[in-house]
Design a binder for these strands. Structure first.
Length: 592
DNA sequence: GACCCGACTTAGGACCGAAGCG
DNA sequence: CGCTTCGGTCCTAAGTCGGGTC
């Protein structure tokens, strides 16, 4: 295998290049630099990789694992059996009880059956997968029980695969690939109420695969007996491998890891755009407030939508094809049924109550007081409409983004999310960091600032399955600690009384040690209570998404430098790799 | 301007090994 | 030591947005 360097050292160079540039440069210098290296949309000059790793082939079940139809044992053809195992593996999941899931699955399963199977198996409810399911559970159990040596062997095999296929060379750099393994076949599980749940996600073959690499590279060979769909040499894109998936008909890609030069630069660029927005956001805000009064309905709708995007960090909200995906919306696709207007609510005037499902079917629920003009406009937009009608019927993301482009080069709806997230972090850090705090307390403040952003962006998570239980465990620990404290206090009291009577050194010492014990227990109790609050506050909030995608890492790096916090306390290894550019370039006085 | 497609970013959940705790 | 909890990684779905076509 030709050009892949074995040394890691070649990776280091590019971060320093970024750092050197950034210290002296205004944001636009960078694009000049980029233009020097890559004229008009060229992403690389050299690209070589080993191609994808395919999912392991299907291994038929052992003879003794039975499938039953209508109470009778039935031996399935290999293809039908494979699809049946997908269902059997999900039997415990409530998915498999859902009407749509079952219907979609059964339809696709039947396509894999032989004609005899098809004529026999006519009802999913007569299928009994429990024996298969038990077998897989036993397998999982067996895997857990594996010896250290066996586990080590698997680990080594994975490392070998990573070493062989997990890297590529792009323009003199050895780079880590993000997802070099092809997605295995299985049953599609959409998020939320997805109309396609349960459909068969088919096995991807070399014949489905488009390879992208440079002409002067060593083209990866397809597996023996197979051919690639196509080999192309397109240096205007960053992907190495692509294929078309069969559920939505969309294209999937193999691309580089976030630590790569190409991703890092893009990330940097994203934050630079957000910083440019910072410079003109006041002007833009004044503008959209003016537009609330416009004679043109289209302009008013645009201005109200933009206000929501800015104030509430809503997503743009592209139109979606009905029936193809879960019914979710963003700002421009809000419908009348998603908001309620309250002229007065809980002592506040002009409150808008939002209730809709956003990306990933995550609920957005918020009651927001808005300015009178916005409120009146919303009333106007809703006049003579049905609940299922679009709130902004004269607006879509393309109109909005074209307008934004006129306000600032490179401005789109999502830049507001990046801008507001980053500026919020910066403000919150300033506000919450207490210089006298020790390091753990400062980190707590950091997490609080992070949390403020996560709430703004509505980054939620399902409460961990064991949340209630673990909360109860924690509570009983707290209760136990309280009792312990009460005991310790009683002991202290009696020791004091004792010392008063005896007046000797020994009893004085006893008092001192009891005092210390009380203090220690008080501290432990406080720690537990802080932990409980923290956990409760974090119950439904996911911090990682904003940390990874919305917060300019230079803010965090600067904060760490300023307060002497080791960067490792804020970013783990993966995150440090992704944000290497920022760690290199940000000084303690960095301002977003 | 509606529609479609391609390329890319953003997203939450499953899983698993390590750390923490009694 | 055995249990629970935590944190990191992997996985892949679901968005955004620009460009092309008609």
């Amino acid at each position: 295998m030709g050009h892949l360097p074995t040394s890691e050292s070649s990776c280091i160079i590019h971060h320093n290049c970024l750092a050197v540039l950034s210290r002296h440069s205004a944001p636009n210098v960078r694009s000049q630099w980029e233009e020097e290296r890559y004229p008009e949309g060229i992403k690389w000059k050299f690209l070589e990789h080993k191609g994808p790793v395919f999912a392991p082939p299907y291994e038929p079940l052992p003879e003794n694992v039975k499938f039953y139809y209508d109470g009778k044992v039935m031996k399935l053809s290999t293809k039908a059996e494979e699809v049946a195992t997908f269902f059997a593996k999900m039997l415990d999941h409530e998915y498999t009880t859902k009407e749509i899931f079952r219907k979609n699955f059964f339809k696709d399963w039947r396509k894999e059956m032989t004609s005899e199977e098809k004529s026999t198996i006519t009802s999913l409810s007569k299928c009994d997968f429990t024996h298969m399911s038990q077998y897989f559970k036993a397998q999982t159990e067996a895997r857990k029980q594996m010896s250290k040596e066996e586990k080590q062997k698997i680990k080594e095999e994975n490392e070998r695969l990573l070493k062989e296929y997990g890297y590529c060379v792009m323009d003199n750099h050895k780079e880590r690939i993000a997802n070099f393994k092809i997605e295995p076949p299985g049953l599609f599980r959409g998020r939320g109420n997805h109309p396609k749940m349960g459909m068969l996600k088919r096995r991807i073959m070399p014949e489905d695969i488009i390879i992208n690499c440079s002409k002067d590279s060593k083209v990866p060979p397809p597996p023996p007996g197979h051919k690639w769909k196509e080999v192309r040499h397109d240096n205007k894109v960053t992907w190495l491998v692509s294929w078309t998936e069969n559920i939505q008909g969309s294209i999937k890609y193999i691309m580089l890891n976030p630590s790569s030069r190409i991703k890092g630069e893009k990330d940097w660029q994203k934050y630079e755009t957000a910083r440019r927005l910072k410079k003109c956001v006041d002007k833009i805000r004044n503008q959209y407030r003016e537009d609330w009064k416009s004679k043109e309905m289209k302009v008013r709708q645009r201005a109200v939508a933009l206000y929501f995007i800015d104030k509430l960090a809503l997503r743009a909200g592209n139109e979606k094809e009905e029936g193809e995906t879960a019914d979710t919306v963003g700002c421009c696709s809000l419908r009348v049924e998603h908001i309620k207007l309250h002229p007065e609510l809980d002592g506040q005037e002009y409150v808008v109550e939002f209730d809709f499902l956003g990306k990933d079917s995550i609920r957005y629920y918020n009651k927001v007081p808005v300015e009178k003009r916005v409120f009146k406009n919303l009333q106007l937009f809703m006049e003579n409409k049905q609940p299922e009608d679009d709130l902004f019927d004269r607006l879509n993301t393309s109109i909005l983004n074209k307008h934004l482009q006129d306000l600032m080069e490179g401005l789109t709806a999502k830049v507001f999310r990046t801008y507001n997230a980053s500026i919020t972090l910066q403000q919150q850090l300033k506000e919450l960091t207490n210089p006298d705090d020790n390091i753990p307390a400062k980190i707590l403040s950091y997490n609080r600032a992070n949390r403020a952003v996560a709430i703004l962006c509505n980054h939620q998570r399902a409460p961990p399955k064991t949340f209630e239980k673990s909360m109860m465990n924690l509570q009983s620990k707290i209760d136990a600690k309280k009792e312990q404290l009460a005991d310790a206090r009683r002991e202290l009291k009696s020791a004091k009384a004792d010392a008063k009577v005896r007046r000797d050194e020994k009893s004085k010492k006893a008092v001192e040690s009891k005092k210390k014990a009380v203090q220690r227990i008080e501290e432990q109790l406080m720690k537990l209570e802080v932990q409980a609050t923290d956990r409760e506050e974090n119950k439904q909030i996911a911090l990682s998404t904003s940390k990874l995608n919305y917060l300019d890492p230079r803010i965090s790096v600067a904060w760490c430098k300023k307060w002497g916090i080791p960067i490792e306390k804020i970013y783990n290894k993966t995150q440090r790799e992704k944000f290497a550019w920022a760690i290199d370039m940000a000084e303690e006085d960095y301002e977003f």
